[in-house]
Design a protein around this nucleic acid. Structure first.
Lengths: 224, 224
DNA sequence: GTGACGGTTCGGCCGCCGCCGAACCATGGC
DNA sequence: GCCATGGTTCGGCGGCGGCCGAACCGTCAC
């Protein structure tokens, strides 16, 4: 336990892990640049993270792509973030534009979080397409039809017996959004439709004009 | 996020946190002794942990009792443990008697874990008193009657809108046990009945002869 | 071949932070 | 009043670990 926490408890490594929490695979050089450290230093850090099985690496061509090793690791990092967000209750904390973007919409490993993620959960709840009891989640029959219509593939449940639908505590909103396999599919399809766009090296995602219309017309969501 | 992980990523502090994961409140001196550090050092560590809201402290008489600040913190620590337990796949790791005791039965903040915790979950599942879908849990009507009969107070749900019933991944068994409010009540009542006994400063709990009989007769469990 | 590029290994510097003993404060028993 | 006990603050020591530049290895393009 100590070793794992110590690995996360370093600014450079935590920055890299946070970037990889976008769900993307990034190269050693990209991560070095994001963490503002030299390539040798980054290489050392990444080596430790891989050795500890927090990250997995797949060599492609002459690059080495790093990614979060498993959903379990992703959940651990979310758990740490959730606790970290509780701190500094009254302490003044200036919000940067980046912060705001992150708070509005981001990926949480493989699903959508932030104001957008919570809004999607709310929309599904309002239409009675889903039941979110605190931690667990369940799609109604209508919900399954709706999401299938939306383009989510709810049958391709991977072999790993992944958690199908669960609620994930959003650290910026302090409310729940949809995670698990269902959440991942909503996110995947949203990207596929061009409703949100991801950028390399950041967890923040952008809601496109097309997405604004799409979420409004399909999910009945409004953005002010 | 970094700060929180860094706090956990120190041997002395992690030892203290692990001891407090028994759910007990412990004094500064007790924690210093458990972590094998001097009282001044422990005081410094505890000060940081309280400042970061990982621990809460309540002064009673001339002692100061420290405890895990919230279920959220407890879940974070469990998450880190779960990841840590994944590591070292084939690496030889000698098990001490203490380890074995911990693996057999322990408290996980406020509920029972280890072989015993998983066995209880299995027993409830076998009798169809509970449904545990991966992360979520739900008591059946018969389950509610059964546990009420057992002496659990399932109506006294605290104001904090605590998660009622959830599954918690057991890091030693790699399977799920019952957590949430239901899990806490099972644990509380088990202690109350003298079926398991806790000892200060350790998460390990002991199954008493009385408990062996009780779990067998009431839950239909067998221990080999 | 040669050069460019991504990545890792090695050596050595430096600073943060955990550690303790000594002193100090607060509470409680007498 | 006294002393004992639990706890914190302070100052200073020491080591772990993060950092970089230089060198090295492998892949690819030409």
């Amino acid at each position: 336990m100590v070793e794992v926490a110590a690995l996360v408890g370093d600014t450079a490594r935590a920055t890299m892990l946070a970037a990889l929490m976008s769900g993307q695979s990034l190269t050693s050089s990209e991560l070095a640049s994001l963490a503002h450290i030299s390539r040798p230093t980054a290489s050392g850090h990444l080596g430790k993270l891989v050795a500890a099985r927090l990250l997995a690496v797949s060599p492609k061509r002459r690059h080495r792509y790093y990614r979060i090793a498993s959903p379990l690791v992703a959940r651990m990092l979310e758990g740490i973030s959730a606790v970290a967000a509780l701190e500094t209750p009254a302490r003044y904390r200036p919000r940067s534009a980046q912060d705001d973007a992150l708070r509005f919409a981001r990926t949480c490993y493989d699903h959508l979080a932030g104001t957008l993620g919570v809004a999607i959960a709310d929309a599904l709840l309002a239409k009675k397409l889903i039941a979110l009891s605190e931690e667990a989640g369940e799609l109604t029959a209508a919900g399954t039809r709706f999401l299938t219509q939306f383009g989510a593939d709810l049958n391709g449940k991977p072999a790993g017996r992944r958690i199908f639908c669960r609620a994930c505590l959003d650290w910026s909103e302090r409310r729940y959004h949809v995670a698990g396999y269902v959440g991942a599919e909503i996110c995947r399809r949203s990207v596929e439709l061009g409703w949100v766009s991801q950028h390399r090296g950041t967890r923040a995602v952008q809601l496109t004009p097309k997405g604004r219309r799409g979420y409004r017309d399909t999910f009945g969501m409004t953005f002010d």
